[in-house]
Amino acid sequence: MCQSCGKGHKDLHVDLKQIKLKEKIDAYRGEAGSLIPVLQEAQDIYGYLPEETMKMVAKEMKIPVAEVFGVATFYSQFRFTPTGRNVIRVCMGTACHVRGGLKVLKALERELDIKAGETTGDGKFTLETVACIGACGLAPVISINNKVFGNLTSEMVPGILEKFE
């Protein structure tokens, strides 16, 4: 049975993710200034912000689509292409910089054969840089799927990557 319309046809004709997002938007309805949280929810659901989703958010929230796009592209948290299964964030903070964060980034780029901002061909890893994770005491650090790895050297990189599927 189709979960969106309840009719007996076999194939789903509505995207379940879209239904979920619609529910989230409904939850924020009437609350001023909720575009950013809604976009965050959308990214949680889709893993990134597809164009169609931004259009839907604009329509549902009665916000011009140019503004939705403007807001989404302003904040570095939002992505517009799908990510790999694991997201690696390399901290570019001051403490990490003076303790060799760049070398860790280079090692990751070499190991994964991609540049920062890209995703590996097998869809396993996305490599990003972030301003500061706030774990300066452990510099240099990276986070993979929000788990922080500290006191790194470039030699430790392959070992850490091995742990991820």
Binding site: M54, A58, P64, V65, A66, V68, F69, G70
Partner: peptide, 19 residues
Amino acid sequence: NHVLDYSKRGFETQVGPAF
């Protein structure tokens, strides 16, 4: 009509329609 807005930021900021 609000067809135009800023997008991106910093040196890469541009002005134009969505997407």
